[in-house]
């Protein structure tokens, strides 16, 4: 059995930042493995540890810089990695959901996995749509926002819980092959061990071009254009207590006593 996990390297923004050229200036960004994908990798690795003959392959769309993040997924137990990138993708700028799904579909075609795990969303763009779009493209069944997974490999069914709003979970049987988008909290992602990090250096990490995944530069064209980025105007009018911690704590304590929620 083969599990493909899509892994994105996301940009995290510092508290104070500036926007230039329609995006957050590079010096305020730090790159890391997308939080939700970390849970997806862990879920796949746990399945590979519990079952015989399970191969875990990660797929990433990203520049060379992303290899550090990909190695981290390998260090946590994935067997090998595929990274899709070339000059045409580099010059295409931000890719829309449909394009990302198209590129990943090219990887699926080559890898022929039995199960695809993705994160529910990426922490930077937060589209929350790539996994389901991919499922529709490759003709897999799917389930979005999965926070419990019990795989019945022989029966060809994934028994999942989907995390709905308001503390309710939907119990669903999903026929294989399937794409499942994994919600945070489904498991406890491990830290990479030193041994894992060493081993990751020698695990295969293949780079694929557009041509390798059966696409051309024309396929990168998007009908969505980001025209502006700005900091939302603060709607806040909070009374901010000033002073050192003792003074501000004193003001808050007085407020709580006045409100009558705390006695003493």
């Amino acid at each position: 059995m083969k599990i493909l996990v899509t892994v994105k390297e996301v940009a995290e923004v510092e508290d104070e930042f500036e926007i230039s050229g329609g995006d957050i200036a590079e010096q305020y960004l730090e790159y890391d493995l997308n939080e939700w994908d970390d849970y997806a990798v862990e879920e796949a690795v746990q399945i590979s540890e519990a079952e015989d003959d399970v191969e875990v392959v990660t797929a990433t769309i990203g520049p060379e810089r992303a290899e550090e993040t990909i190695r981290m997924a390998l260090a946590k137990g994935a067997d090998r990695a595929v990274r899709v990138w070339d000059d045409d993708i580099e010059s295409a700028g931000k890719l829309d959901v449909e394009t990302k799904a198209e590129l990943l579909a090219g990887v699926v075609e080559e890898e022929d996995p039995d199960l695809v795990l993705t994160g529910v969303q990426a922490g930077d763009e937060s589209n929350g749509a790539t996994g389901v779009t991919l499922a529709e493209k490759i003709g897999f069944e799917w389930a979005a926002v999965v926070n419990q997974l019990d795989l019945d490999i022989e029966g060809g069914v994934a028994n999942v819980h989907r995390e709905l709003e308001g503390g309710v979970e939907e119990l669903t049987e999903v026929e294989s092959p399937a794409v499942l988008t994994i919600q945070s909290g489904i498991n406890e992602p491990r830290y990479a061990s030193l041994r894992g990090i060493r081993q990751a250096q020698s695990k295969p990490l293949d780079v694929k071009s557009l041509d390798d995944v059966g696409l051309s530069a024309d396929d990168l064209e998007s009908s969505l254009a980001q025209t502006d980025m700005y900091e939302p105007e603060s709607e806040g009018d909070a009374t901010v207590w000033s002073g050192d911690a003792e003074e501000t704590a004193g003001q808050l304590a007085e407020f709580l006593r006045d409100k009558g929620v705390v006695e003493g």
């Binding site: 937060s126 929350g128 389901v132 779009t133 529709e136 799917w142 926002v145 995390e163």
Partner: peptide
């Protein structure tokens, strides 16, 4: 809706109908 269920069908519908999709 950009609800948990909306996230479960809207991308598939957009893909099936070849519509550009903008979420949330």
């Amino acid at each position: 809706p950009n609800s948990v269920n909306g996230m479960d069908y809207a991308p598939a519908v957009a893909e099936g109908l070849s519509l550009p999709l903008v979420t949330d």
